[in-house]
């Protein structure tokens, strides 16, 4: 099937089996390896990307479903000023250790702040509830999001 979508701000067209996982297409066809595979069944969030600005688990999206949609991965998001705010906040708050969950955490953070620029602690926890981190214990990540909110005032 011919699938047309926007990937990291660029229009792309691929001819592929629409049942393939978006995760595989991004990693294999486009070499976007910031999108990680953890559990492969929607429990860990390491494969999080944005579709039409909402975070999704790319391991659970058949690529046929992104036809005519807008897909953003950490590689595309990295080029934006908002990303810089989140990156610095994560570093300053000590929210990164091994880094495997980090792209997913960052994409979930963007998805949250896009919908809700001033989230409460509970709203942050809900927004990150689909992303597992086995290193930091989450408190630093929640702190990082709060720091990004503060420093990014007006950006979202």
């Amino acid at each position: 099937m011919i699938i047309k979508f926007t990937l990291n701000h660029q229009a792309v067209t691929i001819d592929t089996d629409p049942s393939r996982r978006l995760l595989d297409v991004l990693r294999v066809d486009f070499n976007l390896v910031g999108v990680k595979e953890g559990c492969g069944e929607g429990e860990c969030g390491a494969c999080s990307v944005l579709i039409n600005h909402q975070v999704v688990n790319s391991c659970l999206v058949p690529v046929g479903n992104v036809h005519n949609k807008d897909v953003l991965t950490i590689e595309g998001y990295k080029l934006t000023p908002k990303y810089k705010i989140i990156e610095t906040a994560f570093v300053d708050a000590g929210a990164v250790q091994c880094g495997f969950c980090t792209p997913g955490m960052v994409m979930a953070t963007e998805s949250l702040l896009y919908q809700n620029p001033h989230p409460s602690d509970l709203e942050i926890k809900i927004a990150l509830s689909g992303n597992l981190c086995r290193c930091t214990g989450y408190n630093m990540i929640i702190e990082a999001v709060k720091l990004a909110v503060e420093r990014g005032e007006g950006l979202w």
């Binding site: 049942s19 996982r21 595989d24 492969g40």
Partner: peptide, 21 residues
């Protein structure tokens, strides 16, 4: 298949392969 969040788990196979529907 609608969102795919059940179908892709139910028929999942190895990484980089299509679901075994």
């Amino acid at each position: 298949i609608a969102g795919g969040t059940d179908v892709l788990v139910q028929y999942r196979s190895w990484s980089e392969t299509v679901p075994k529907v």
